[in-house]
Design a protein around this nucleic acid. Structure first.
Length: 527
RNA sequence: GGCCCCAUCGUCUAGCGGUUAGGACGCUGCCCUCUCACGGCGGUAGCAGGGGUUCGAGUCCCCUUGGGGCUACCA
């Protein structure tokens, strides 16, 4: 289980100097990626996938991976939600080199903090807004919300899309009104007209690391708000698109890897990079994860929160693998996997093989069956010691009362399960004696025959529950009573577990222990 | 509606002008077997449609259709 799940690994990594193999001769600055979720709810599986790509890319290039909390949506952001993000990331083994210290709003790791946007207001955003205002690249806007709504309606009533200060709304905006700060105001960025030399044939364009060249006509974008209307005559809380640019620059992010849904934000941000005179990073837009029906993955598709996957008994490594393999095909010497075995990559292999050019442009549907399969395979190949810490969370208190030998046998006996939850279920008989109502009637009738009872009686005389000893003893019993293992084993299962299904019978007996076996057998033998 | 993106088995995908269109998951047949599983060996199923370009198109171009994203003083 590489990658771990402890999530306590927040120490700074030695900032690797080797960024060799930089793709496409991009640039010479060190690789820095970041995951910037907003704490407005649970940690979405799609977000985790994006984070995973960022993490893989940073690890692959010996760079840094940053976690930044985008909490400028005052209405929806909460400390609890920040906690959920931190815990979810940690559980997934996505350790960050810079970012918040879990559970402690006042501390962080890294030299570019703070890493919660609301804590960067005075220090980072306001000065940037003021500078833009001062340089005439942004302006104060006093168009009220109600007024704007009306203008929007009026324009849309004519079947034309509303664009602030453009099209049918031209001349209505504050762009040339030189408002001062004597009244409340929002701040808008002046977007290019279309003739600026830095544009590409009148369009804001870039070469996306995943999608290739993308271009948006400047005329299709209006002056957007970079800072909301503030209290009194102050500058208000800046908007997402503004903060991202200031932060990515301040944190030296070299590669902005994010969800597809941000493609249309990119030209706005590029215009801001231009206005601020910042060097723009590389952009890579990762396709979305869709639900089974092809619609955006949402609650109604089942689990979307990473916490739910944890609760269902998936290993973090399995979640990482399954998520990574959506839209990404690892290639070894240019070859994709040709066998099931090759599909099961370790974290080290993923890091080694990760390459943006092998990422699909189209969205992928989330396949629970494949996750399940990977989970099962990873459970199978893990040692019982690796599994125990994960399994423990699914077990009753009594689990911890058992010794290593017992745990080892319990785990290996159920290690073909698809999930930790399933393993727990198949061990449930250990702590729960079947009640009268629990016995599977059909099974009782079928296996608990008169012919098998003398053999069962003899089983009660056995004292050595070691696997080999049981094996030998059983051979004798079967021979004496003219039975097959199948007959005795099934009868025992029914007697011990109430149903004809359990781990291998000798293991089942060992796990229960002689005393418990006798107690459960008593009901079926002469009282 | 406008802008942008996407399109190979049910799903994830390989393919980069000439292939019996390959693999994995799922489903399924057989074998193995003390139950359930695991495992082993097979099978099933695909280039959305229509035009071009070309000796030749899943691969290149255009259109149609379908899907997705954005279109906020949300992120």
């Amino acid at each position: 289980m590489a990658g771990g799940s402890g999530g306590k690994n927040f120490v700074n990594r030695p900032s690797a100097s080797d960024t060799g193999g930089l793709p496409r001769g991009a640039m010479s600055r060190p690789v820095v990626t970041r995951f910037a979720p907003s704490p407005t709810g649970m940690l979405h599986i799609g977000g985790v996938r994006t984070a995973l790509f960022c993490w893989l890319y940073a690890r692959k290039h010996g760079g840094r991976f940053i976690l930044r909390i985008e909490d400028t949506d005052l209405d929806r952001s909460t400390d609890d939600n920040i906690r959920i993000i931190e815990e979810g990331m940690a559980w997934c083994g996505l350790d960050w080199d810079e970012g918040p210290v879990p559970g402690d709003p006042t501390r962080w790791i890294g030299e570019h903090g703070p890493y919660r946007q609301m804590q960067r207001m005075e220090s980072h955003y306001k000065p940037a807004v003021e500078r833009l205002l001062h340089e005439g690249k942004a302006y104060r806007c006093r168009c009220g919300r109600e007024e704007l709504d009306e203008r929007r309606k009026a324009v849309e009533a004519r079947g034309v899309p509303f664009q602030y200060n453009r099209g049918l709304d031209a001349g209505n905006g504050c762009r040339n009104r030189q408002h001062d700060a004597s009244e409340p105001f929002a701040v808008r960025l002046k977007m290019p007209e279309g003739t600026e030399p830095w544009l590409d044939e009148g369009a804001i364009a870039w070469t996306d690391l995943i999608k290739g060249r993308l271009a948006f006509p400047a005329a299709s974008m209006d002056d957007w708000i970079i800072a909301r209307t503030g209290e009194g005559c102050e500058i208000g809380v800046p908007t997402y698109n503004f903060c991202v640019v200031v932060d990515d620059t301040g944190m030296e992010v070299s590669h902005v890897l994010r969800g597809d849904d941000h493609v249309s934000n990119t030209p706005k941000q590029i215009a801001l990079y231009q206005a601020m005179g910042f060097e723009r990073p590389e952009f890579g837009h990762v396709p979305m994860i869709l639900g089974k029906d092809g619609a955006k993955l949402s609650k109604r598709h089942g689990a979307t929160s990473i916490t739910e996957y944890q609760a269902m008994g998936f290993l973090p490594a399995a979640v990482r693998l399954a998520l990574a393999r959506l839209s990404w095909t690892p290639k070894v010497d240019g070859q994709a996997a040709e066998t099931a075995e090759e599909e099961l990559l370790t974290d080290a292999q993923m890091i080694e093989l990760f390459d943006l050019k092998d990422i699909q442009k189209s969205p992928a549907r989330f396949d629970m069956d494949k996750l399940s399969w990977m989970n099962q395979k990873l459970i199978q190949r893990a040692s019982w010691r690796e599994l125990e810490p994960h399994l423990r969370h699914f077990m009753p208190q009594k689990w911890n009362e058992n010794g290593d030998d017992w745990k080892r046998i319990a785990i290996t006996a159920t290690q073909k399960g698809k999930s930790l939850k399933e393993m727990e279920e198949s061990l449930a008989f250990c702590w729960k004696r079947p009640a009268e109502a629990d016995f599977d009637e059909k099974a009782v009738e079928k296996f608990m025959t008169e012919a098998v009872k003398p053999a069962l009686q003899e089983v009660t005389t056995l004292t050595d529950y070691d696997h080999d000893a049981l094996q030998a003893a059983f051979n004798g019993i079967l021979e004496r009573h003219g039975l097959k293992l199948k007959d005795l084993a099934q009868a025992l299962r029914v007697a011990l577990c109430g149903k004809p299904v359990s781990p291998p019978i000798f293991d089942t007996m060992y796990l229960l222990g002689r005393e418990e076996v006798l107690a459960r057998l008593a009901r079926w033998l002469g009282e």
